[in-house]
Write a protein that binds this DNA or RNA. Structure first.
Lengths: 340, 340
DNA sequence: TTGAAAGCGTTACCAA
DNA sequence: TTGGTAACGCTTTCAA
């Protein structure tokens, strides 16, 4: 390493025999500067291991090119931070942000501040927010939106809001899953999940709708409200069977993790899947097909979700109109349900 | 919202009737300032929704309080970005960084720059690097270290390096897994993974060691080199059985994902786990116990790993000596292996 | 096509 | 215990 003090744009410019302005423009590839000059400076920068100081340029331009991604969980007992589906969303968002020249600052709702707009935006930590999950409570999101923070939410796009929400067609997903079980001959179908939660509520609506449409006696069906974790599902299924016997022959799970918890409980009791009980999950996490039997599930298109979220966020930076958007889902038919 | 222009420290100070210096110190909770003044200013800031501009303070202090976490994968066919174990590490690192007042900038090795030190550190994007995974090639890490970037790596701590590496006792892990299978009566034990990869190489060493120690004929054992994904494991096991029949009765998998892929292939062929073939995984991902049979595995302590990594990184900021550290592992005995 | 200079919002030195 | 002031390193307006 050299014994010189840290290289700055001014020194680099000096080295090249041009002004700082020219150097700045050259490194930012500004077409105002002659192409030869630009290339010369860019190479010089590389040779000298020089990188523009982002703290300085952010201060000057008032743009950070950073997006804060907030994993919005209520607490650890809720949908766990280790749910592979949510992490897949983060990963896809990261790819998409990179594509647009943005970087990802990862945060979670357990974080210090309660005022996201203030903490991230006013402080110039980030230009915008991508919030993963509405949870059961969108107060913090509303506060951030009201403060003028550019943001987009992954959640239930049916909810009326002042900010764009991107999410799957959960209602139709719940419908598809339930209808699939009915067509496979299920008569007593459990809904396993938390209908209080916005997205899960929509899935539950679809479930109810499918039951109605098929003249299945709703009263004989059962909505079982649990935390959206495999552990909760496992315990609930065990408890249910212990107390009431095997009174159901199908399960619509609010997520794959929930489905897998239920699956485990059933298999431990030597209940045949899908003949005694058929199961449909939601999400299509990578592991869904590794299970035995492989899990039938409703696939959510996370890559498209990431694309739309970043799109809606960037539109806000450009003062363009934004809107919530619903993403199509599809049923992935595997072996945890009976073929029709 | 007010119609005033953006609030700055200077304006806030004016509002409070103190100098900017005092306001700055007060908001940074500098004990030089009288407690009453500090509290008054902190409250005023809150009331006015004011947050110090980080771009400015980072420029001034030359510290960002940001750590870049780099998921260092060679490409998509390698250990996938969706491996729950790695994501768990990221999540734990995030918690730990927050505890120390740092924020996490998430990146992956597919990212623009090849020179991490230059890209993240020289540019004031981050103060340090946490690199998850050595991969098979540590050139980029060496370059970054040589450029003086403070960094710490999650990988194989046995590797000699100029930077601290935190990792599990992989050798002992491989040994434990293998010994466990041997004690359970396995005679022909497969190692499923990529020994070229630093950590997996250590696990393989432990495997060999255990075989030797128990006078098992090494030549009858088999090291099967595959990508560390469940898909590769699934395909390889199928191919092996198709070509050579069931010539093994135990599998030491280099990761849980690999184990689960193998498990699927075996179950599809109605091979009894653990009686016909016993399996031990590595990592103890959350899903390991959801499988049927639940996966016996070597647990890595990611929370401790996160703690040590952040510790070693912060030591570098304070010019303190750093060192690689090995984390103890333990065998989690479940049903994919025979009880001893 | 290039250069001079002001200014982004902090922090910290020095002085009081 | 507080205040004045320079400086952090860049971008951009205005002028040449």
């Amino acid at each position: 390493m050299s014994n010189k003090s840290k290289l700055t744009l001014a020194k680099l410019a000096q080295l090249a025999g041009v002004s700082t302005s020219t150097a700045s423009r050259a490194l930012n590839n500004n077409p105002l500067i002659k192409k030869a000059t630009r290339e010369r400076l860019q190479q010089l920068a590389q040779e000298n291991n020089f990188s523009l100081n982002r703290a300085a340029s952010r201060l000057r331009t008032q743009k950070t090119h950073v997006i804060a991604v907030i994993l919005n969980f209520i607490n650890d007992t809720d949908q766990s931070i280790s749910d592979p589906f949510l992490l897949k969303v983060v990963s896809d968002v990261n790819q998409e942000l990179n594509k647009h020249g943005y970087e990802l600052l990862l945060s979670n709702s357990l974080m210090a501040s309660d005022d996201w707009g203030n903490y991230f935006i006013n402080s110039s930590r980030a230009d915008g927010l991508i919030i993963i999950g509405q949870g059961k409570n969108d107060e913090k999101i509303n506060t951030a939106a009201k403060s003028g923070a550019p943001l987009v939410v992954w959640g239930d796009p049916m909810v009326t809001s002042s900010y764009p929400i991107i999410g799957s067609d959960n209602n139709y997903g719940g419908y598809l899953a339930t209808e699939h079980l009915i067509k496979g001959g299920c008569k007593h179908i459990l809904f396993l999940g938390d209908p209080e939660h916005a997205e899960m509520g929509q899935r539950h609506k679809g479930y109810t709708h499918a039951l109605n449409e098929n003249d299945l006696d709703i009263e004989h069906q059962l909505t079982v409200s649990i935390d959206i974790t495999s552990k909760a599902a496992y315990e609930k299924i065990n408890q249910l069977i212990l107390e009431q016997g095997l009174f159901f022959d199908g399960i619509v799970a609010a997520s794959d993790m929930v489905a897998l918890g239920a699956l485990k409980a059933l298999k431990e009791r030597y209940i045949n899947i899908p003949n005694d009980v058929a199961i449909v999950g939601f999400d299509d996490i990578a592991m869904a097909e590794l299970f035995h039997p492989a899990l039938t599930t409703i696939r959510q298109d996370t890559a498209l979700a990431a694309k739309l979220m970043v799109e809606q966020l960037i539109k806000q930076f450009n003062q363009q109109a934004v809107k919530s958007q619903t993403i199509d889902i599809k049923l992935i038919n595997r072996n945890s349900s009976r073929t029709i």
